[in-house]
Amino acid sequence: MSIHSETTLTRRKFLEAVGATGAVCVAAGLIGMPTLTEAADAPAATNIDELIAKELGAGPVALEKVKIDTPPKAENGALVRMPVSVDHPMEADNYIATLAIFVDDNPKPLVGKFDFTPAAGKVEVELRIKMAKASQIRAIAKTNKGKLYGAVMKLEVAEGGCAG
């Protein structure tokens, strides 16, 4: 259940996961360097559903209670506003224990994971994230009992944000 396991994502996995556009993004700073040659020895692309199951546990995700409150088009991919809220009690025996945000087409789809206690009072967070290109975004919340709720949206990006 640790984000650190994500760092084992190999270069080829990453290239497969991001596809051509993502590779261009990484290659933008390369100036003629060979890019794909070291990509020969890794397993298959990351499957987002498997990643969600790994991070939050397997099970059906009910598409309710979670809200991603950002405009459908981000002007700057380096600074995409990401406010996410979960309409759920935060009581001692019934609360949102974890919220995770995934950007499907980012090289590492798991952008952030947030573990809460009932002391938070409510789950409403905001952060800013980087997006290389348009992508589907998923915010998935898990209750202390393991039930999953989520929201999915497609976000356009006017200018990709690999830099910064």
Binding site: S2, I3, E6, A78, L79, V80, M90, V103, N106, P107, K108, L110, V111, G112, K113, F114, D115, F116, T117, P118, A119, A120, G121, K122, V123, E124, V125, E126, L127, R128, I129, K130, M131, G161, G164
Partner: peptide, 21 residues
């Protein structure tokens, strides 16, 4: 109250807001 675990895809000079009771 909250523990955030981030990847390098969180923007430079990271802002983060949350609630506390």
């Amino acid at each position: 109250v909250v523990q955030a675990t981030w990847s390098g895809a969180v923007s430079k000079n990271p802002f983060f807001s949350f609630y506390v009771k």
